[in-house]
Design a protein around this nucleic acid. Structure first.
Lengths: 171, 171
DNA sequence: ACCCGATCGTTCGTATACAAACGATCAGGA
DNA sequence: TCCTGATCGTTTGTATACGAACGATCGGGT
């Protein structure tokens, strides 16, 4: 696997045209750290780290939920009842992902499923009493996490950022 | 997608006090769609979809790279040479993730590894000739993808958004 | 009544992403 | 010298995330 076609990476041979070797290698003006995609990924990573740490501190690491699980649980709590795929659409998860998330929530006793006699394809999901208590217990932390994620910005910047981000997300 | 917040909880008679059932269930003022974390996740998803689609159109679905693979490849091309973990740190991947990404890049012949006699723990990575050609081939698409991701925003908004996002990502 | 396209939930395969633990190696100090 | 802490890359396990394919079911049109 270690073929030797590699070790000519640094033969910087300034061509008469004047193009620079590093620019030739990485491309002109393409700085990874300035690309939206990379910045979105890093910001999302930072939020996920804050979420995991702060929620575990608030409710205990054994009762902690992932961001995705929290999204599904809160959404379902607000709906009262929903089909699995419908819940997935409202939380931006595809059916395969939703299946895993819901399965873990059920395994924890936070969500229950029931067959729908009117449509035998679907599953009616609802939040159990333990699920409602979990939402109530985690809610203050969830708010604090959103706060902490936005901490680098001033109040006016937060409003502006959220507005622009929303347009980026739902375009 | 018409989101229906109208679906209220099922058997709820409005109490004389006036408190609403959905608020009681999901918590007051916590609207998932307004949380930074959720918006970051959706925006990141949208970018990933654009990336996959546009890059496949540009270089063919068989030669396409994932956003993470592209980040590692471009970064390594700019460095000329790097250790695996060092490359991971520069692209915000932990060692376990980096290992998988680099392994796939090597399997495609875009990156090569060499032992470092000075430090037998490390692996020196570099971009192969095929890797440099892949970078050159994908670079226009990469720029177009960043453009397309920012398309919902005006020019001034883009600058502002990137500035705020950078502070969110690197705080 | 039948058919046919759409939707439901599931499964498989692949690719991030991270925690945790591991052996190997390095660097520095007693 | 030896020891000790740090770093390197790897592996395992878990959790998103998505494409693709699947059988079951629904609904509409004929």
């Amino acid at each position: 696997m270690a073929d030797d076609t590699a070790l000519r990476s640094r033969d910087r041979r300034p061509r008469p045209g004047g193009e620079d070797a590093a620019r030739e290698a990485a491309g002109p003006d393409y700085v990874l750290e300035h690309q939206v995609g990379h910045l979105l990924r890093r910001a999302h990573q930072r939020h996920a780290a804050l979420f995991q740490g702060m929620l575990a501190d608030a409710v205990g690491s054994d009762a902690a939920l992932t961001p995705t699980q929290w999204a599904a649980l809160v959404k379902l709590a607000g709906l009262g009842e929903a089909t699995q795929n419908a819940l997935g659409r409202l939380t931006a998860m595809d059916p395969a992902t939703t299946q895993g998330v819901v399965r873990r929530l059920i395994a924890r006793g936070l969500v229950s499923r029931a067959a729908d006699p009117a449509d035998r394809r679907t599953l009616k999901l609802s939040v159990t009493q333990a699920g409602r208590e979990a939402v109530a217990a985690a809610l203050p932390a969830a708010c604090a996490i959103s706060e902490a994620t936005l901490a680098p910005l001033s109040d006016e910047e937060r409003d502006l950022f959220l507005d622009l981000l929303q347009r980026m997300a739902f375009a």
